[in-house]
Design a protein around this nucleic acid. Structure first.
Lengths: 339, 339
DNA sequence: TGACATGATCGAAACGTTTAGATTAGCGTT
DNA sequence: AACGCTAATCTAAACGTTTCGATCATGTCA
């Protein structure tokens, strides 16, 4: 900017005023300055500007897995929204790893992001401290966090799973395996609650042997399913509480020589683009990814626009059961085994 | 830092020296300073540091689509690599849109990223100018660009498609539909060349009616497939040059009342995690995503480590044909699945 | 004992902006 | 002619670091 000012024979203040439109600059000087800017190929240095202004027009976004299609879609929507608003997005994947998450959030805060959208991992205590320290607005995505009192966008997980399990029960299933993600994040709690609630509403017992836990990865789903299928009295249907794990479920079913939906019914959380075209077409709980991403972005943009003092807002969206053909009434095979 | 210095009764220079280890600080002062840092909860301001140092320890990464599993996986690997190296990653999705890409790269450069990894879109001329202007290292990913002479990681696309098409020919197919992405990016060129080469090697004619173009999206694959299937003499196999488009292909096949692989064989570029478990299990060309991501990261990290003047390096990796059961000899109805 | 190398510490300038407040010029009032 | 008002422009101080060169004890050697 100094060079531009010299070339145009004006002060840097005038150059700044012209660029930002913060003061009127005479046509004559404007022209000289614009010419100089072109000649020199000047670009404003956003770092220096950030230092002075105390804002970077950048937000941080952390998600557990970028390969999980749910997060992929949401990230995409969020990215577009902030793009439109002139913000850059720093993306971090925590890989469901607690330390990584903490480090990355600190990294983002060091870089003075103006705001944070966090699909958190693990225990909330550290997150709480970090969020309290940071004096930037934070929006929690998908996973809320006791004690962290801030804006959030979540799904009505309990209701969504209740609907799905009830659907299975209505088909005639009595023994329904349930594969949960690890329990330290809110959705897994709520989804499990939905499972239990549905069983109870139908007067079915909650048998612990039918519930397995995994760490969200395909391999966890595989192992969990293997255990469920080797039970003495094995379930006639399996519900997987997240998407990558259901792939493991399908692989386990295949490897054990069964097939879906003939021998066993399968449903899962999170829809994905392929569910429609391949067989079996999976029955899933679809999250409104577009809305989730947009709402999260809007919450943060609203705070960034200055609305700092409004009380925390928690938005709860509804999932939708996408009934396809991976579930059937329990068949002869399942019956005979259980008899 | 000023507050820390005051609290510890030292100068800011000493605080800086201690934090960065750039000079020896007596144990006594070290202790006072560390105490003050803890008391105050001081965090170094990375923006001010960047301004002074001229480096942000942040890189920019632009991809066309984050919902394409190929890019998702590569992004994930790159993100991890830079994470390990202490860099942050700014991710931008250009949505295959040229203007968006140019804007976003400018945005990234304004923010003084230390380097750039670009899976480019569209004509290279503007990109070339941007890259020349930016005096940061740039690595091209997946898509090279005539005239832009910089590091790159690409696939041997021609060979990969040659292998895939030859496989179809060996199965007995003579009319093989080919759905290409738009032609302004290098991989689509090379993949098409592989298609033509395979036909030629087998002495088959290159019929233009069998080749369709789309813009990488599912809907484009759908339309292209509809056209191919309504040909008077319709193809017995279809190869889709990218992954999202093949979903459209499968939907079109379903909607028109055919089934794969009984009535028509399908193969495509880019593997995805589901290909193994759902039917038909798609035969795909798998890219070595892990290697691609790592190599791209390494090329850039090497430049960032100071190796600026080495001549541009272009790494070409090999794809792998994953033969599953979405392709059969033409007209072979109800043959038992063996592969 | 004086000269001098050594090691620890500090003062101050610089990075490239923004902006409050000072300065100046032009012009209409009285 | 002196005055005040407005609009345009400039000066200079920040923002929070890093770093160069200066300063100042302290111990070593001739």
């Amino acid at each position: 900017m100094l060079h531009v000012a010299e070339a145009a024979r004006v002060s840097v203040a005038t150059v700044s005023a012209l660029i930002n439109g913060t003061a009127t600059v005479s046509p004559e000087l404007s022209q000289r300055i614009e010419q100089a800017i072109r000649d020199i190929g000047y670009k404003r240095n956003a770092i220096a500007r950030s230092l002075k202004m105390g804002t970077t027009r950048t937000i941080g976004l952390t998600v557990p897995h970028i390969t999980n299609p749910f997060f992929t879609d949401v990230v995409s929507v969020i990215q577009q929204a902030f793009d439109r608003a002139g913000y850059a997005v720093m993306l971090c994947c925590t890989d469901e790893h607690l330390n990584t998450q903490d480090d990355q959030i600190r990294l983002l805060l060091d870089r003075m992001v103006d705001g944070l959208i966090v699909a958190r991992v693990g225990d909330g205590a550290i997150l709480k401290r970090i969020v309290d320290d940071a004096n930037v607005p934070v929006v929690l995505l998908d996973r809320v966090c006791q004690g962290v009192d801030t804006d959030a966008v979540v799904l009505d997980n309990q209701r969504a799973v209740f609907d799905a399990i009830t659907y299975l029960i209505d088909l005639g299933h009595r023994r329904i395996g349930y594969i949960s993600g690890s329990f330290d994040i809110s959705p897994m709690h709520d989804r499990m609650a939905g499972y239990r609630e549905a069983l109870q509403a139908a007067g079915l017992p909650a048998e612990t042997e039918l519930v397995r836990f995994g760490n969200f990865h395909e391999v966890d789903g595989y192992n969990a399913t293997m255990q469920l299928l080797s039970l003495h009295d094995r379930p006639s249907a399996i519900f997987s509480a997240n998407n990558p794990m259901v792939i493991g479920t399908m692989k386990a079913i295949r490897d054990i020589g069964l097939s879906c939906p003939e021998d066993i019914s399968v449903a899962c959380f999170d829809d994905f683009p392929w569910s429609d075209v391949f067989r079996p077409q999976l029955t899933t709980v679809a999250q409104p990814v577009q809305a989730i991403g947009e709402q999260a972005a809007n919450l943060l943009l609203d705070r960034l626009a200055g609305n700092r003092d409004a009380p925390p807002r928690k938005l709860t969206l509804k999932g939708r059961l996408m009934i396809r053909n991976s579930c059937r009434p329990p068949g002869a095979i399942a019956q005979s085994v259980s008899a």
